[in-house]
């Protein structure tokens, strides 16, 4: 269970989050929608532990543990995963090396032995295939020269390999065509489980046709302004975010 209470945060002294309250039980998918600049991505980064943001008030607990005191890598090995809106390019580090290092860091945190090379390759191959990612692509440096769609699929591959218990997807659909959205959504849906919670952040309703949420929240001016069922997403698609402070598109 993820519990966010009265979360206030700022960057360079400027308040971004102004009292977020949100609870996501295990097994559920919650979507956060909202206009640009409402604080959606900030919330995602804060969950993952990015240091640029200062939490000035409130709390975040994951399975009862206060995560605000934890380093980003500790949060990750505790099961929190952020699929980045803008995945980073890492020249000189082959994807396979990166994936292996990440998997082994998780295994080490759990007190398990590192994977052997054949074990690792088999594991990656199986999951990469389903996401339409070739092994050749994974021999290249992380995200370098990847198309927008490849980068997002690569994020989902990481999620599938690390098997987190809280998946935060930040605008995973941005910049994707409909086929790519479908592949990504299938990857996410395959991971739905009673032990896993999802927070899907998106500007558009489209993704939620494929990843059907249990609850939809609207974020505006750094707060959850409204919550409802999946039909709320459709309503927003019709009405836009005008009433939440963004000019109708």
């Amino acid at each position: 269970m993820l519990e966010i209470k009265n979360l206030h945060a700022e960057i360079d002294g400027e308040p971004i989050l102004r009292g977020v309250d949100l609870a996501i039980p295990k097994g559920e998918i919650h979507a956060i929608m909202g206009p640009n600049g409402s604080g959606k991505s900030t919330l995602a980064y804060i969950l993952a532990g990015k240091e640029d943001y200062e939490v000035t008030e409130g709390s975040i607990t994951w399975n009862g543990k206060d995560i605000l005191e934890m380093e980003p890598d500790e949060r990750a090995t505790s099961g929190i995963f952020l699929a980045f809106q803008y995945p980073m390019e890492i020249p000189g580090v082959a994807s396979l090396n990166f994936l292996r290092t990440a998997i082994n860091a998780h295994r080490k945190a759990r007190g398990e032995a590192e994977l052997t090379t054949p074990e690792f390759i088999k594991m990656v191959k199986d999951k990469a295939e389903k996401l339409n990612i070739s092994m050749d692509m994974l021999k290249r440096p992380v995200n370098v020269g990847f198309s927008g769609g490849e980068k997002k699929r690569h994020e989902i591959l990481q999620m599938a390999l690390l098997e987190p218990s809280l998946c935060v997807l930040d605008e995973t659909d941005s910049g994707l065509d409909i086929d790519a959205v479908r592949i990504v959504a299938e990857g996410v849906n395959a991971m739905r489980s009673p032990d896993r919670a999802f927070l899907v952040i998106t500007h558009y309703q489209r993704l939620l046709n494929y990843i059907v949420p249990d609850k939809v929240h609207v974020m505006a001016a750094g707060r959850i302004a409204r919550s409802g069922g999946k039909e709320l997403a459709l309503e927003l698609e019709q009405s836009g975010y005008a009433e939440y402070g963004e000019n109708a598109a």
Partner: peptide, 19 residues
């Protein structure tokens, strides 16, 4: 880049060394 690696569970020292 450091944050990206650490968000994947890679400890700070190891992330630095990798980069």
């Amino acid at each position: 880049l450091m944050f990206y690696l650490r968000a994947r569970g890679i400890p700070e020292e190891e992330a630095r060394s990798l980069l």
